[in-house]
Design a protein around this nucleic acid. Structure first.
Lengths: 237, 237
DNA sequence: CCACTTTATTTGTATTACTATTAAATTATT
DNA sequence: AATAATTTAATAGTAATACAAATAAAGTGG
């Protein structure tokens, strides 16, 4: 009964996250400009009808993603776009919610082009026994699905496959991409803007090369995959 | 007078950041294991001698970097390493402070190998007029310094050069690397673990190719640079 | 006109109280 | 006795308020 208006304010999820999302949207969409000083804490508290505690937690969240910067007396300012952490999954979620996803997808594909071949090569050299087992299981699943196609389960397995490659590089700096990748793939699913083609043979080539510990071949196989899928995606939306 | 003990507690910078750093150190160093539940808020408040507000802000900060995860009744748990955002500058700072930087530097170089050639190629195609001017000025500075060498100013200019390339890609996902790069370079400076070689000709090749809008040549030039510097770094520390 | 001091504003920290969530223990029911 | 529903207790989440610290801007004195 008493939580009726909570649902009105948005999805019932924790308050400061709701507030953070709302502010993030305005920043990411450009509704509030870079370097602009946003209203003071008290003002925002009234505007969002939340306590200062919650508001501050929201601002702290955005600060840690590089969107805001607070200084006493001067206020809280929107930082330059250069400082925004576009590889943060939550931030990506917010960004995707806004709309102009074509640019996002294109940029992301470009990043995949740079990273995945190298990641595949590293995985071929460094994947642990445990990781090889997981990768095997996942590829097996892909192979099965490709014979009896279903878009959702395919995307799921596809995502897991590439995620595991990033996790198997043995390089900490590649780990964040695993999460970003998941976010993007989930977005692909909900916006269903992918064509239904599996590229199972290209995936098999990557898989085999990694298993064989052949980094050169793994890199090349991943390049081939991306080249093929490049012709598939861009016309989406 | 009254801020005497504040300085004892650490550098005087804001409280919740100090607390966050302390907790982060324990997590990153492995002193507290992954998936382990850290003590409850009240316990930590007493331990760090800070209010619950500050402690919560610290925890929120770490949560947003993927290090922690809180759930009611169960407590706050250290997440799997896969979720740690190694591309966050602050997190990197903490990581570097701990010690085993050889692995960090090696991994970072590997990432540069994957990203920079592609970034240079993109910059050749997409750099704005403004960005080309900045790049020109920076390269000019590098050229000057190379003739009258000084390690610190050269590292500074070198960093700015590569940073500008990332910023000029026109791809949002490359932006975070600009910051990570800065953090790493600053760490190089303070730990002075770089040899004093400028590679000015390799840099000139990159610069010229970008200015000429020749993405293929820019990519190759950056590969050449990395190949050369690869033989320089690894024996550091 | 400059250097210094005061003041006012805004974020930062602290304290306390209450709410919501949920894992686990308890009880009731089949 | 086993299972399902209920209660309980522990923990994070939210709120409200007060005070501290920092600092930009206004004011003051030399």
């Amino acid at each position: 009964m008493q939580n009726a208006f909570v649902e009105i304010a948005g999805v019932k999820r924790s308050l400061h996250v709701q507030v953070a999302r709302e502010i993030a949207r305005k920043i990411l969409s450009g509704e509030v400009a870079q370097n602009e000083i946003i209203p003071g804490e008290m003002t925002l508290c009234e505007q969002f009808k939340v306590s200062r505690t919650s508001l501050r937690e929201a601002i702290k969240l955005l600060t840690s993603k590089g969107l805001l910067e607070s200084k006493p007396k001067v206020g809280t300012r929107v930082t330059d776009r250069e400082n925004w952490n576009f590889l943060d999954s939550q931030l990506l979620d917010w960004l995707i919610d806004i709309g102009d996803n074509n640019a996002v997808y294109r940029d992301f594909l470009s990043l995949r082009n740079a990273l995945e071949p190298e990641a595949a090569a590293l995985a071929a050299e460094n994947a642990s026994a445990q990781q090889r087992i997981l990768l095997s299981a996942t590829f097996q699943k892909m192979d099965d699905i490709s014979k009896n196609f279903d878009l959702e389960s395919w995307t799921e397995a596809d995502m897991e496959f590439h995620r595991l490659i990033f996790l198997s590089t043995g390089n900490s700096f590649y780990l964040p991409f695993a999460n970003v990748l998941c976010t993007m793939f989930k977005s692909f699913i909900t916006h269903s803007s992918v064509r239904g083609s599996t590229c199972i043979n290209e995936h098999r080539a990557i898989y085999s090369a990694i298993m064989a510990g052949d980094s050169v071949k793994a890199r090349q196989a991943n390049v081939d995959l991306l080249n093929k899928s490049k012709r598939r995606l861009p016309s989406s939306d």
